[in-house]
Amino acid sequence: MTDKFISIEGISKRFPAAGGGTTTVFEDLWLGMERGTFTCVIGHSGCGKTTVLNVLAGLDRPSDGAVIVDNQSIEGPSLDRAVIFQSHALLPWLTVMGNVAYAVASKWRRWSRAQVEEHAQRFIALVGLSGAERKRPAELSGGMKQRVGIARALSIEPKILLMDEPFSALDALTRGTLQDEVRRICQETGQTVFMITHDVDEAIYLADRIVLMTNGPQAVLAEIVDNPLPADRARDDVHKHPLYYAVRNHVVDFLVTRSKSYTDADKAALDRRNPPIVRPGAPEPAIVSGESASPSWPGLSRPSTSHAG
Protein backbone atom coordinates (compact mmCIF):
# COMPACT_ATOMS: atom_id res chain seq x y z
CA MET A 1 0.00 0.00 0.00
CA THR A 2 2.94 2.29 0.42
CA ASP A 3 4.50 4.36 -2.31
CA LYS A 4 7.68 4.78 -0.30
CA PHE A 5 10.69 2.56 -0.88
CA ILE A 6 11.44 2.45 2.83
CA SER A 7 8.61 3.02 5.23
CA ILE A 8 9.15 3.13 8.97
CA GLU A 9 5.70 2.62 10.41
CA GLY A 10 5.09 3.51 14.01
CA ILE A 11 8.13 1.88 15.56
CA SER A 12 8.89 2.19 19.28
CA LYS A 13 11.74 1.00 21.42
CA ARG A 14 11.36 0.35 25.12
CA PHE A 15 13.78 -1.12 27.61
CA PRO A 16 13.02 -2.43 31.07
CA ALA A 17 14.20 0.31 33.42
CA ALA A 18 16.50 -0.32 36.36
CA GLY A 19 13.93 0.21 39.10
CA GLY A 20 11.08 -1.64 37.39
CA GLY A 21 8.88 -0.12 34.73
CA THR A 22 10.11 0.71 31.27
CA THR A 23 12.20 3.39 29.62
CA THR A 24 10.88 4.50 26.27
CA VAL A 25 13.66 5.58 23.95
CA PHE A 26 11.32 6.66 21.19
CA GLU A 27 7.72 5.99 20.40
CA ASP A 28 5.45 5.84 17.37
CA LEU A 29 8.03 6.94 14.84
CA TRP A 30 6.98 7.21 11.20
CA LEU A 31 9.27 8.01 8.31
CA GLY A 32 9.21 7.31 4.61
CA MET A 33 12.13 7.41 2.21
CA GLU A 34 11.97 7.38 -1.54
CA ARG A 35 14.25 5.34 -3.74
CA GLY A 36 17.53 7.03 -4.50
CA THR A 37 17.29 9.65 -1.75
CA PHE A 38 19.87 10.49 0.88
CA THR A 39 18.42 10.91 4.36
CA CYS A 40 20.42 12.11 7.33
CA VAL A 41 19.25 11.85 10.92
CA ILE A 42 20.49 14.40 13.43
CA GLY A 43 19.78 14.37 17.12
CA HIS A 44 21.57 14.34 20.41
CA SER A 45 23.03 11.18 21.89
CA GLY A 46 20.39 8.99 23.45
CA CYS A 47 17.58 9.93 21.11
CA GLY A 48 17.63 6.47 19.60
CA LYS A 49 19.06 7.21 16.15
CA THR A 50 21.34 4.22 16.26
CA THR A 51 18.44 2.03 17.34
CA VAL A 52 16.45 3.22 14.32
CA LEU A 53 19.39 2.34 12.10
CA ASN A 54 19.82 -1.05 13.73
CA VAL A 55 16.12 -1.74 13.21
CA LEU A 56 16.52 -0.80 9.55
CA ALA A 57 19.53 -3.10 9.36
CA GLY A 58 17.57 -5.91 10.99
CA LEU A 59 20.10 -6.16 13.82
CA ASP A 60 17.57 -4.95 16.37
CA ARG A 61 13.83 -5.37 16.62
CA PRO A 62 11.42 -2.59 17.47
CA SER A 63 9.17 -3.09 20.51
CA ASP A 64 6.25 -2.02 18.35
CA GLY A 65 5.63 -1.17 14.76
CA ALA A 66 7.27 -2.36 11.58
CA VAL A 67 9.59 -1.31 8.81
CA ILE A 68 8.64 -2.03 5.23
CA VAL A 69 11.35 -2.05 2.58
CA ASP A 70 10.37 -2.53 -1.03
CA ASN A 71 6.96 -3.79 0.09
CA GLN A 72 8.45 -6.35 2.44
CA SER A 73 8.53 -6.24 6.19
CA ILE A 74 12.01 -6.42 7.72
CA GLU A 75 12.44 -9.68 9.65
CA GLY A 76 16.19 -9.71 10.10
CA PRO A 77 19.48 -8.66 8.54
CA SER A 78 19.59 -8.83 4.79
CA LEU A 79 22.15 -8.52 2.04
CA ASP A 80 19.84 -5.93 0.49
CA ARG A 81 20.79 -3.53 3.26
CA ALA A 82 24.48 -2.86 3.81
CA VAL A 83 25.76 -1.24 6.98
CA ILE A 84 28.79 0.98 7.29
CA PHE A 85 29.74 0.87 10.94
CA GLN A 86 31.06 3.80 12.91
CA SER A 87 34.12 1.83 13.99
CA HIS A 88 34.60 0.38 10.48
CA ALA A 89 34.29 -3.16 11.96
CA LEU A 90 36.85 -4.72 9.64
CA LEU A 91 37.91 -8.25 10.47
CA PRO A 92 41.53 -7.64 11.54
CA TRP A 93 42.80 -11.09 10.59
CA LEU A 94 41.79 -10.59 6.97
CA THR A 95 43.47 -8.37 4.39
CA VAL A 96 41.69 -5.54 2.61
CA MET A 97 40.90 -7.93 -0.20
CA GLY A 98 39.86 -10.59 2.33
CA ASN A 99 37.42 -8.26 4.02
CA VAL A 100 35.75 -7.15 0.80
CA ALA A 101 35.85 -10.64 -0.70
CA TYR A 102 34.19 -12.02 2.44
CA ALA A 103 31.18 -9.82 1.78
CA VAL A 104 31.16 -10.61 -1.95
CA ALA A 105 31.39 -14.35 -1.31
CA SER A 106 28.55 -14.06 1.21
CA LYS A 107 26.28 -12.52 -1.40
CA TRP A 108 27.23 -14.68 -4.38
CA ARG A 109 27.97 -18.02 -2.76
CA ARG A 110 28.47 -19.95 -5.98
CA TRP A 111 31.05 -17.63 -7.46
CA SER A 112 34.55 -18.90 -8.01
CA ARG A 113 37.38 -17.36 -6.07
CA ALA A 114 38.57 -15.51 -9.17
CA GLN A 115 35.12 -14.04 -9.78
CA VAL A 116 34.86 -12.95 -6.17
CA GLU A 117 38.27 -11.29 -6.21
CA GLU A 118 37.64 -9.56 -9.49
CA HIS A 119 34.38 -8.13 -8.20
CA ALA A 120 35.98 -7.10 -4.90
CA GLN A 121 38.86 -5.52 -6.80
CA ARG A 122 36.43 -3.21 -8.63
CA PHE A 123 35.10 -1.85 -5.36
CA ILE A 124 38.54 -1.53 -3.79
CA ALA A 125 39.49 0.55 -6.82
CA LEU A 126 36.28 2.57 -6.47
CA VAL A 127 37.31 3.81 -3.02
CA GLY A 128 40.85 4.45 -4.23
CA LEU A 129 42.64 1.65 -2.41
CA SER A 130 44.17 -0.18 -5.39
CA GLY A 131 47.59 -1.37 -4.35
CA ALA A 132 46.63 -1.89 -0.70
CA GLU A 133 44.72 -5.14 -1.28
CA ARG A 134 47.17 -7.31 0.61
CA LYS A 135 47.44 -5.02 3.64
CA ARG A 136 45.80 -5.84 6.92
CA PRO A 137 43.55 -3.31 8.68
CA ALA A 138 46.22 -2.65 11.33
CA GLU A 139 48.51 -1.31 8.61
CA LEU A 140 45.94 1.22 7.38
CA SER A 141 45.10 4.72 8.57
CA GLY A 142 41.65 5.46 9.99
CA GLY A 143 40.47 6.95 6.71
CA MET A 144 41.70 3.98 4.69
CA LYS A 145 39.98 1.57 7.08
CA GLN A 146 36.69 3.38 6.63
CA ARG A 147 37.21 3.27 2.84
CA VAL A 148 37.48 -0.50 3.12
CA GLY A 149 34.26 -0.46 5.16
CA ILE A 150 32.59 1.54 2.40
CA ALA A 151 33.96 -0.77 -0.31
CA ARG A 152 32.72 -3.78 1.63
CA ALA A 153 29.24 -2.30 2.00
CA LEU A 154 29.00 -1.25 -1.64
CA SER A 155 30.46 -4.48 -3.01
CA ILE A 156 27.31 -6.45 -2.21
CA GLU A 157 25.38 -3.95 -4.36
CA PRO A 158 22.76 -3.29 -1.71
CA LYS A 159 19.43 -1.61 -2.27
CA ILE A 160 19.98 0.51 0.81
CA LEU A 161 23.09 1.84 2.46
CA LEU A 162 22.91 2.39 6.21
CA MET A 163 25.65 4.49 7.77
CA ASP A 164 26.11 5.00 11.50
CA GLU A 165 28.27 8.10 11.94
CA PRO A 166 30.72 6.72 9.41
CA PHE A 167 33.11 9.65 9.49
CA SER A 168 32.96 10.71 13.13
CA ALA A 169 36.21 8.97 14.06
CA LEU A 170 38.18 10.63 11.27
CA ASP A 171 40.15 13.86 11.15
CA ALA A 172 38.54 16.80 9.35
CA LEU A 173 40.56 16.52 6.14
CA THR A 174 39.98 12.81 5.69
CA ARG A 175 36.34 13.28 6.56
CA GLY A 176 35.93 15.83 3.78
CA THR A 177 37.55 13.60 1.19
CA LEU A 178 35.45 10.62 2.17
CA GLN A 179 32.26 12.68 2.16
CA ASP A 180 33.04 13.71 -1.40
CA GLU A 181 33.60 10.13 -2.41
CA VAL A 182 30.50 8.80 -0.71
CA ARG A 183 28.49 11.53 -2.37
CA ARG A 184 29.97 10.76 -5.79
CA ILE A 185 29.46 7.02 -5.41
CA CYS A 186 25.90 7.41 -4.15
CA GLN A 187 25.01 9.68 -7.02
CA GLU A 188 26.60 7.37 -9.56
CA THR A 189 24.91 4.28 -8.22
CA GLY A 190 21.62 5.91 -7.22
CA GLN A 191 21.84 4.44 -3.73
CA THR A 192 19.15 4.96 -1.18
CA VAL A 193 21.03 6.07 1.89
CA PHE A 194 20.12 6.41 5.55
CA MET A 195 22.84 8.04 7.57
CA ILE A 196 23.29 9.11 11.17
CA THR A 197 25.51 12.05 11.90
CA HIS A 198 26.29 14.69 14.49
CA ASP A 199 27.81 17.01 11.95
CA VAL A 200 25.39 19.64 10.65
CA ASP A 201 27.59 20.64 7.69
CA GLU A 202 28.02 17.02 6.71
CA ALA A 203 24.26 16.55 6.73
CA ILE A 204 23.67 19.65 4.62
CA TYR A 205 26.34 18.66 2.13
CA LEU A 206 25.21 15.07 1.72
CA ALA A 207 21.53 14.82 2.46
CA ASP A 208 18.41 15.46 0.45
CA ARG A 209 16.41 15.42 3.62
CA ILE A 210 17.51 15.96 7.19
CA VAL A 211 15.47 14.30 9.90
CA LEU A 212 15.51 16.07 13.25
CA MET A 213 14.88 14.11 16.42
CA THR A 214 14.23 15.56 19.86
CA ASN A 215 16.19 14.48 22.93
CA GLY A 216 15.49 11.12 24.47
CA PRO A 217 13.99 9.47 26.34
CA GLN A 218 10.63 9.57 24.62
CA ALA A 219 12.26 11.11 21.59
CA VAL A 220 10.09 12.02 18.65
CA LEU A 221 10.75 12.79 15.04
CA ALA A 222 10.09 16.53 15.25
CA GLU A 223 10.42 17.53 11.61
CA ILE A 224 11.96 16.78 8.30
CA VAL A 225 14.10 19.47 6.71
CA ASP A 226 13.94 19.42 2.96
CA ASN A 227 17.38 20.48 1.81
CA PRO A 228 16.89 23.43 -0.59
CA LEU A 229 20.44 23.33 -1.96
CA PRO A 230 20.82 22.27 -5.59
CA ALA A 231 21.62 18.62 -6.26
CA ASP A 232 24.86 19.47 -8.04
CA ARG A 233 26.35 21.25 -5.05
CA ALA A 234 30.11 21.07 -4.66
CA ARG A 235 32.17 21.10 -1.50
CA ASP A 236 34.20 24.17 -2.41
CA ASP A 237 31.26 26.53 -2.77
CA VAL A 238 28.29 24.90 -1.06
CA HIS A 239 28.76 27.15 1.95
CA LYS A 240 28.48 30.23 -0.28
CA HIS A 241 25.04 29.32 -1.47
CA PRO A 242 22.55 31.92 -0.22
CA LEU A 243 20.36 29.29 1.37
CA TYR A 244 23.20 27.44 3.10
CA TYR A 245 23.03 29.36 6.34
CA ALA A 246 19.25 29.34 6.35
CA VAL A 247 19.38 25.55 6.51
CA ARG A 248 22.33 25.52 8.86
CA ASN A 249 20.78 28.00 11.27
CA HIS A 250 17.52 26.13 11.26
CA VAL A 251 19.19 22.83 12.11
CA VAL A 252 21.54 24.35 14.70
CA ASP A 253 18.66 26.22 16.35
CA PHE A 254 16.81 22.96 16.59
CA LEU A 255 19.78 21.13 18.12
CA VAL A 256 20.66 23.91 20.55
CA THR A 257 17.23 24.90 21.81
CA ARG A 258 14.21 23.27 20.28
CA SER A 259 15.35 19.67 20.70
CA LYS A 260 15.36 20.27 24.47
CA SER A 261 12.31 22.49 24.77
CA TYR A 262 10.03 20.23 22.82
CA THR A 263 7.14 19.94 25.27
CA ASP A 264 4.62 17.20 25.79
CA ALA A 265 2.03 19.54 24.29
CA ASP A 266 4.18 19.86 21.20
CA LYS A 267 4.46 16.11 21.08
CA ALA A 268 0.71 15.74 21.42
CA ALA A 269 0.12 18.25 18.65
CA LEU A 270 2.57 16.48 16.33
CA ASP A 271 1.06 14.47 13.53
CA ARG A 272 3.45 11.57 13.88
CA ARG A 273 2.45 9.89 10.66
CA ASN A 274 3.15 13.04 8.66
CA PRO A 275 5.80 15.02 10.48
CA PRO A 276 6.11 18.62 9.28
CA ILE A 277 8.37 19.10 6.30
CA VAL A 278 10.30 22.34 6.52
CA ARG A 279 12.11 24.00 3.66
CA PRO A 280 14.30 26.70 5.23
CA GLY A 281 14.80 29.77 3.15
CA ALA A 282 11.65 29.23 1.17
CA PRO A 283 9.12 32.04 1.48
CA GLU A 284 7.36 30.44 4.36
CA PRO A 285 5.45 32.43 6.95
CA ALA A 286 6.50 30.21 9.82
CA ILE A 287 10.10 31.27 9.44
CA VAL A 288 10.03 34.90 8.35
CA SER A 289 7.04 36.03 10.40
CA GLY A 290 7.89 38.46 13.18
CA GLU A 291 11.03 39.67 11.50
CA SER A 292 10.26 43.09 10.12
CA ALA A 293 11.85 43.79 6.78
CA SER A 294 14.16 40.87 6.67
CA PRO A 295 15.05 39.33 3.33
CA SER A 296 13.18 36.26 2.24
CA TRP A 297 16.06 34.09 3.37
CA PRO A 298 18.06 34.92 6.46
CA GLY A 299 21.29 33.77 4.91
CA LEU A 300 21.90 37.17 3.32
CA SER A 301 21.79 38.96 6.62
CA ARG A 302 25.07 37.36 7.60
CA PRO A 303 28.35 38.96 6.67
CA SER A 304 29.51 37.64 3.38
CA THR A 305 32.30 35.13 3.60
CA SER A 306 33.07 35.10 -0.08
CA HIS A 307 34.95 38.34 -0.61
CA ALA A 308 38.37 37.02 0.31
CA GLY A 309 38.72 34.85 -2.77
Binding site: F85, L91, A103, S106, I156
Partner: peptide
Protein backbone atom coordinates in the same frame (compact mmCIF):
# COMPACT_ATOMS: atom_id res chain seq x y z
CA UNK B 1 30.46 -5.52 15.64
CA UNK B 2 32.30 -8.42 13.96
CA UNK B 3 29.30 -10.64 14.64
CA UNK B 4 27.05 -7.90 13.30
CA UNK B 5 29.12 -7.79 10.12
CA UNK B 6 28.47 -11.48 9.63
CA UNK B 7 24.79 -11.04 10.46
CA UNK B 8 24.25 -8.24 7.96
CA UNK B 9 25.94 -10.43 5.35
CA UNK B 10 23.46 -13.24 6.17
CA UNK B 11 26.29 -15.61 7.04
CA UNK B 12 24.95 -18.91 8.43
CA UNK B 13 25.84 -20.18 11.89
CA UNK B 14 28.39 -22.77 10.80
CA UNK B 15 30.17 -20.39 8.42
CA UNK B 16 30.04 -17.69 11.09
CA UNK B 17 31.76 -20.04 13.54
CA UNK B 18 34.60 -20.77 11.15
CA UNK B 19 35.01 -17.35 9.54
CA UNK B 20 34.42 -14.99 12.46
Amino acid sequence: EWINVARTLEVGTLRRIFTV
